[in-house]
Write a protein that binds this DNA or RNA. Sequence first.
DNA 1: ATAAAAATCCAAAACGTTTCGGATTTTGTT
DNA 2: AACAAAATCCGAAACGTTTTGGATTTTTAT
Lengths: 338, 338
Amino acid sequence: MTTIKDIAKAAGVSITTVSRALNGYSDVNEKTRKKIIEIAKQLNYSPNTLARGLVMNKSKTIGLLVSGLTRESTKDNFTFEVLAGVNQYVSEVDYDMVLFSTTSTKQREKTYTQLCRERRVDGAILQGIRVDDPYLQEVVESDIPCVLIDIPIESETVGYVTTDNVLGAKKAVQHLISLGHRHIAMINGYEFAFVSEQRLKGFQEALFEAGLPFHEHLVANGAFKEERAEQEAVRLLTQHPEITSFFCASDLMALGVMKAAKTLGKRIPEELAIIGYDDIILASYTTPPLSTIAQNKFAMGYEAAKLLIEMLEGKAQSRVRVLETELKIRESTVKNHG
Amino acid sequence: MTTIKDIAKAAGVSITTVSRALNGYSDVNEKTRKKIIEIAKQLNYSPNTLARGLVMNKSKTIGLLVSGLTRESTKDNFTFEVLAGVNQYVSEVDYDMVLFSTTSTKQREKTYTQLCRERRVDGAILQGIRVDDPYLQEVVESDIPCVLIDIPIESETVGYVTTDNVLGAKKAVQHLISLGHRHIAMINGYEFAFVSEQRLKGFQEALFEAGLPFHEHLVANGAFKEERAEQEAVRLLTQHPEITSFFCASDLMALGVMKAAKTLGKRIPEELAIIGYDDIILASYTTPPLSTIAQNKFAMGYEAAKLLIEMLEGKAQSRVRVLETELKIRESTVKNHG
DNA sequence: ATAAAAATCCAAAACGTTTCGGATTTTGTT
DNA sequence: AACAAAATCCGAAACGTTTTGGATTTTTAT
């Protein structure tokens, strides 16, 4: 493995000069720089990032901390798309990304801060962690720059990227209302999830603005799980047969509701209209295809990485990024659409 | 940031002793070890992996080099599941994983070896690279330990994990034959992909063993793309109306064939049976659900990581892992199944 | 009590890089 | 020609850890 020292010897200069030549400093003669670069190429030199990181006290590496990266979770490609987005930006600016998953068999006894400091990441992006996750506490207290996805916490060192969940939910419900629906049920995620809170708010606002009553009993929690949503939908539909449509806080749960409809023999969308949230891949492949509020998850990852690195380099204007959502109308709400 | 030196000072011992105490060496008194560990905890110490990696000349980090991690590619969650598997094992044995993607906007000018050496990974896993990819050349020549996924190259420093693609294809085709199909077309991937080669072989073997003729003109290349497969299927079906079933070398391409069938007004499976390969999530959500040969992609990632780390630590028996596949019978081949 | 053996500790070098402060050489000015 | 200024170079320290080889102390055996 050739080092800077080898180059220095070969070029007949000091290692200082080699370092400064390779890093583009101005106090080295262009001729010697050319020569050094040439020799470096010949010797097939590549810098040792460990040594560099050690002395510079930064690694040009960010951590992506996700929760729930298990075999099963791959159905929901939210995490994956975010990851792809992060990866994209990171590679554009020549950083590296290391993946931390909080669901090892033995629940990691290491704290968030330890994880980050030990691996010497300059900052971290947190995705998919719950509000009651102990990690979250630490983040705010720690001094490690970090960007949260879909959790609106802001401080000197932490920012976040999210979408306008109130507006997104509102658009979904307004769509249902415009189709003539008056008895709209909602399958939400779980208590205390920020997005759930916000989507419920959007749900209520849409009803209110349309002069429709809000009924607490038409809202159920599906825990973002397909099966739970199915159960809740069955329960709601039998207890409240007046329901003609569902707004679900995630596509996965909408799939559950579709199953429930099938079980109960209700035709979609004629007898029951269903709209989801996220626009996961599956959404356009179900029968009928699922209407939904699309979130650009790739962009969320991309923006998160961008924001984090801007923060690291001290050139972030604000620490918040809010992205747009888009209403995708498919056949689960409108017959023969497209 | 507290260092080993701080601990040494606080404990009144040398830094050598602290290092050896923390790393469980036997030449340190249990009482002092206890004390040192206690102090380390109090000072909230976490080791600097950069410094450690520098002196030990290894980073306990492996690289996952994937190709085609773009916004679009997320439909095919193959990569993601492999990644999840790699991540799982890696976190079990306290390694780290850094993700390299070869599809940055500017095609990476850095070579594979540079990438690995620069980031100081101890070894790498390569997934999704094509046979004509320049990276592949380098791998074999380089001395960096590495594990390939689905490319059977073996040397002192490189191993691979794959599934038995000949057998898998055979199982798929035998299934079609057992259903009475005699005119079976195949949509393969692209030329010179190892898995394509093998699956074609399995296709032929199954035909041969059943005493059926092999017709070159019933095989088309779909480039592992949905659209290409659709086009090819339309072409084949119009040119050769005797075809009653398709074996596709990937589920994504099978989706394309399903679209083709729909366009041509052919009912599945009555008029056209279709079987895919991979068992991606989408497969069980299409109408009708897609029969397929399931590969355990998570396991492939897990085994790849395991193999690589065994190789790194010099305790790998062999450098090859071949996993099983499973025939999943769904309604695209058998009406009212399940 | 003494020698040998075991246990426990430590100083210093090494890993490969960046950077500070200054030294040397070249160029420009008069 | 002499001096100032600019350009170019370099030695040494520092980053935080592991490890080598030996030094010191304690225990054991005689």
